[in-house]
């Protein structure tokens, strides 16, 4: 008799456990306004990334087309993957002294692991992490970027 009772009790317990599970899913089914999906390309305008988000390395320029990069190459040394290449050139300044300045700050986005070591090591804060995360390109050539804009020059007062 007891085993029969247990058998029936077991069935009802099992059904109850199933019903509690169904209650959880039903709760979410009937509250569709709590849905978590975001419609991504449509919400581009309202989508704001956090300011520390590491999307890509960029070099900020001011309105006079000036940057802070001295071309010292510390970021190149600190990069674990070789995604930064510094090409510098010699110029003669007004005082007649020879000086090395940056020619091209080449950044290989395809090789970058976004570890932040270059930004952390930069003595003049010339490069920062940008928030752009849409890195799809048609060819890999476009993933190699020159960070300093053409015709730009170094900001005055940046310590060499």
């Amino acid at each position: 008799m007891k085993s029969t009772f247990n058998y029936i009790a077991e069935i009802f317990k099992a059904i109850w456990s199933l019903l509690t599970g169904m209650k959880v899913t039903a709760k979410y089914f009937f509250t569709p306004w709590n849905n978590v999906t975001q419609q991504y390309p449509e919400n581009r305008d309202t989508l704001v990334m956090f300011d520390r988000f590491r999307g890509e390395v960029i070099m900020p320029h001011d309105e006079k087309n000036e940057h802070k990069c001295t071309g010292c190459g510390i970021c190149e040394i600190n990069c674990p993957n070789g995604s930064i290449e510094i090409i510098s050139k010699s110029i003669v300044n007004e005082e007649g002294k020879k000086k090395r300045i940056i020619d091209q700050h080449i950044y290989h986005l395809a090789m970058c692991t976004f570890c932040n070591l270059c930004i952390k090591s930069c003595p003049s804060d010339a490069i920062v992490m940008g928030q752009n995360f849409e890195h799809a390109y048609w060819d890999r050539v476009s993933m190699t970027k020159v960070l300093n804009r053409p015709g730009s020059k170094i900001m005055e007062g940046v310590k060499e």
Binding site: Y28, F29, N35, V36
Partner: peptide
């Protein structure tokens, strides 16, 4: 659609 609604998706 039903499965999406159960899973809080669209």
């Amino acid at each position: 659609k039903v499965c999406a609604a159960f899973q809080q998706r669209l």
